[in-house]
Design a protein around this nucleic acid. Structure first.
Lengths: 218, 218
DNA sequence: GTTGACAACTTGTCATCGTCAACTTTACAG
DNA sequence: CTGTAAAGTTGACGATGACAAGTTGTCAAC
């Protein structure tokens, strides 16, 4: 009746356990990476017994799938914002690149599982829905680019290229999703700030733009 | 003295266990993905006890690191071959793209661990050595491109872009390293053959080439 | 306002996993 | 023949994911 914990409503036994579990999972993955994830540890951090998550997410793939869905939602939101703020099609491509890196930086734990088919259920309805929406948002930005500047752009092809490049960038460079080999830098892994990777993403976007703006069917 | 098993020499107790373990690991990862990997299962498939791998690889990260090193070696070899067969700098970039996809297709298990900092020891000397060699081979191809066609190409930048794009391509498209969400295809995951992905990689290479061949500092 | 039913959560168990320590077997040097 | 070290085995420990069964809280119906 009176003893509310902090924020969540008193609809359930212990407040909003699903949310608490997802938060704990994010925290754990951020700390130890996707391989360090453990359902029991998540439950422990949420202050519940080791079997509590079962009733909300089924198994560990269920929890991680929920995280992936959330991640795609973040990506979708960021892309929509890019779309909204862009002043030209060219500007939009660069903003898309920055958006991708922003999401990876702001939500590393989500990104660490979003593309891991071995950890999540990629055919989950919600996960698919938001993933598709994010991809379609990217494609629509490229359609605008085609309409404004170039008529012979293969949108599907270009979207695949952009998606792949940004995904590779995020996976490959240190400090983003999980620390990674630093072949591309040789000089050292330090010196990679979120801003520098953002800038790199923007330059890549520009390079892609240049390539996409010429006749692709050469 | 006389009872050789099949191929390996009789130098050790049971032939060439390290090789047998790596082969079993490749088989297991190919079947069940990187997350389905288990040291004990590998030992089981190699016909030895669960603790045998310890004496050769230390722990599971040791075995996977050895696999990653092997994978980088495959990549290096493929890139060297691309370099050798190329008739022009432009042709080289396309061949590099194809090479990357070939390695991912021929050695999916290796590629599934090569970029997984949470599973391998990225600072392992051998792993670093071959990874660096592969990257430098890519960079040298781009240097040739710069020298032959364009003088103001930022090689480091271009190499990063190519590396990221190919990595993303390999990770993202179904049937390659591990089956993945298929946002980029929507129509369905079927219809993705190794050849079609190879062609896609080549087209991406061409697009990148177009972008890289113009002044990057626009 | 008592009862009953269901959701939320707990406790206990099982097979499996990675890692460690101790033991056994084989190869080879002296 | 003997001793030593590498190669491989057995056994054990704590931790994990999944499952089964029990417990607690909540809310609707009467």
């Amino acid at each position: 009746m009176s003893g509310d914990d902090s924020e969540a409503s008193s609809r359930y036994h212990h407040g909003d356990l699903p949310r608490a579990l997802k938060a704990a999972a994010v925290e754990l993955i951020t700390e130890k990476g996707a391989a360090g994830f453990s359902l029991r540890e998540v439950a422990r951090r949420a202050g519940v017994s080791h079997a509590a998550p079962t009733h909300h997410f089924g198994d560990s793939a269920g929890l991680l799938t929920a995280l992936a869905e959330e991640g795609f939602r973040y990506l979708y939101d960021a892309l929509v914002e890019s779309h909204r703020e862009a002043t030209s099609a060219a500007d939009r491509l660069i903003r898309i690149a920055r958006a991708y890196v922003s999401v990876a930086h702001d939500h590393p734990a989500h990104c660490a599982v979003m593309f891991r088919a071995d950890l999540i259920r990629r055919d989950d309805p919600g996960c698919r829905e938001w993933g598709d929406k994010a991809y379609r948002e990217l494609a629509s930005g490229l359609e605008a680019l085609r309409d404004e500047e170039q008529s012979d752009l293969d949108v599907e092809e270009a979207a695949g290229l952009c998606w792949s490049t940004m995904q590779g960038l995020v996976v490959l460079y240190p400090g983003m999703v999980e620390r990674e080999i630093k072949h591309a830098t040789e000089a050292g892994a330090e010196g990679w700030t979120p801003e520098s990777i953002q800038d790199r993403a923007a330059r890549y976007g520009r390079l892609l733009l240049t390539g996409l703006s010429r006749s692709p069917g050469a």
